[in-house]
Write a protein that binds this DNA or RNA. Structure first.
Lengths: 224, 224
DNA sequence: AAGTCAATGATTTTCGAAAATCCTGCGACC
DNA sequence: GGTCGCAGGATTTTCGAAAATCATTGACTT
């Protein structure tokens, strides 16, 4: 979805951001019902824009709708984590492969710049202030987006973007509960190097491995 | 208010179906603006459910939203046709491969039954009544859905379903403008045979070829 | 006791109009 | 001659309340 510009041109857009943030940060938990009365209080607006925001969030998999029973926060599960991971490996792997094959000098610049921005601040961890964690998350997303930005397929890019944001909720779980023992920075650097060396297959394989490790690090949590 | 429950559980759902149908049948054309006043008249309801319907349609790529300028029917283009085709070949090809590997006897039954239903009525063509064409389209969609139904990945299935319905608009163009010279029935039969013979790679390749032919048959139209 | 059914309360869904925003055309000014 | 700015009109967006629907409770029958 790329219809909202940050800052707020419409109230519905603001509501979308506010509720999305509440879900991502855990202010409302998976399975929680989202009552319109509460959301109107949270967002400070009437029911109509809230309804539109929920429609968008539902399309992206953050919330689910039960006819005449309203909306609730989508639950997290090991099955979904595995499912999303496998689908990302397929789609984003191919997107990266295409991007490496078709990227021009301008694309190389975007990748280098995005990596540089991300590497400048420490990775999200328990002992890092929340604001900086948010910042790193944004730069992390921008780096992955830059990698596949030259794939030439808007449809594939849209799919990857949606899957990335759906996986974001699981990624946050990883940060807050397990810490980060892996050398994520090293994985990212290697990803960039393979891409810039125009090793399409190698970069795609490294990306699949990268996502596989992230998922594996979370498997334990759901064993509870 | 005394609303009748004509089939739909919510008016927003009815509006979604009505507008979607208007777009698919060409009652409103690509690029046309969708004014709320017109849609309210068409659907016989107030603005709120229409707005929700448009939000859903936009999420699926049938319409586009321009902030404060309203909704319009998404345009068709050769670039998008190629893009969607390539993405379908990737996603649905993999889904079919997985489905063939993992499908059980129950899945085989679903595939055979869906194919039988589709083969019983003639394929959509100019000289066929519109109602029968709609019927065939529905069974065609059901057949393709059955093929990949055992892939085990809800995320992938959702992506395939969305891409299928997006491609549906182009498919209709093919029917009304070019007729069907290809042996589509034969392609479908071969697809089923490969799947039931558990030739996962062969079936996936046949599916990619099937979609490639459909797209190729339409290339000419956009040359205008 | 168990099951049915109607009244009640909570919540979603829809309405119709008001407010906000954008587009167009016209005129003034440089 | 061309550009800028500003009413007028059309359209979207939002509001607050009314209507419809779902879940629950409790009385009443079997």
């Amino acid at each position: 979805m790329e219809q909202k510009k940050a800052g707020g041109r419409t109230l519905a857009g603001d509501a979308y951001e506010a509720i999305r943030q509440a879900i991502r940060t855990g202010a409302v938990k998976p399975g929680d019902r989202l009552r319109f009365a509460d959301l109107q209080a949270l967002c400070g607006m009437s029911v109509t824009p809230v309804r539109e925001a929920l429609a968008r969030l539902t399309a992206e998999g953050f919330t689910v709708l039960d006819d005449h029973r309203g909306y609730s926060v989508a639950r997290l599960s090991l099955e979904e984590l595995r499912d999303i991971t496998a689908t990302r490996q397929l789609c984003e792997g191919e997107a990266l492969r295409l991007s490496v094959l078709r990227g021009d000098a301008d694309w190389e610049g975007r990748v280098i710049a995005a990596h540089h921005l991300m590497a400048r601040i420490p990775q999200a961890r328990e002992d890092i202030p929340s604001a900086m964690r948010e910042d790193w998350e944004a730069r992390h997303a921008a780096f992955h987006a830059a990698l596949i930005s030259a794939c030439g397929s808007p449809a594939l890019l849209e799919i990857c973007e949606k899957l990335f944001s759906r996986a974001d909720r699981y990624r946050r779980l990883s940060v807050s509960l397990l810490g980060t023992a892996r050398d994520v920075a090293g994985e990212h650097r290697r990803l960039m190097e393979l891409a810039l060396a125009r090793d399409a297959e190698g970069a795609a394989a490294a990306l699949r491995d990268h996502y596989g490790r992230t998922a594996a690090a979370l498997e334990g949590f759901f064993a509870v």
